[in-house]
Amino acid sequence: MSPAPVLSAAGLRKTYGELVVVDDLTFDVPGGGVVALVGPNGAGKSTLLECLAGAAPLDAGAIAVGGVRSDPSSAAHWRQVFGILDDFTWLPDLTVADHLVLMSGDRGAEAVDAALERFGVAGQRDRLPESLSAGQRRRAALAAARVRPWRVLLLDEPEQHLDADGIDLLADELVSMATPDRCILLSSHAAGLVDRLGCPVLDLTRSGRT
């Protein structure tokens, strides 16, 4: 018996004027599952993730998290769905550790230190994110995904700016973070990462239509 879906999407549609980016898309991501969105540039991967995260409004369709319908523009949805998308912004004046501890809820500073250590950015804990390299910032964002409570994790090309070791680490972490009550949906152009994850693929090549 396959595990119950944690994320369910039915009849999703998103348009930008005349351009239909996502058209009548229905899919489930089961608990403990990682699903990779693939497709060429402009296929609608980032747009789909933005809609699921509540960063962009859907034109039609319904989203359910844990079997319960969820409004992507509500704080309740945001508590369950964590997205590291294109617009992931670090805040001025807060250190990397400040960001993570504030996101971590009850998990506390120890969990933050462990996550930063795991992603190889423990030495940057008291630095401002703007002073980090793009790769270090990406690692810190992924560390945030370890400490922030979520049920659905959305990642838009998480391999960006990461070196080869970082991509290996990312693959290992994604597998370990996808516990039975959670799921991960990521978009990627890195065939190596998708192969390594060995996860189901949702090909959006035919989803977008003009």
Partner: peptide, 22 residues
Amino acid sequence: RAAEAWLATEQLPRVWGIGTHE
């Protein structure tokens, strides 16, 4: 000054998992 920069970021409430007004 910092708060204004933060509030201009629509992504903030989604990352923190709290309401926009909160």
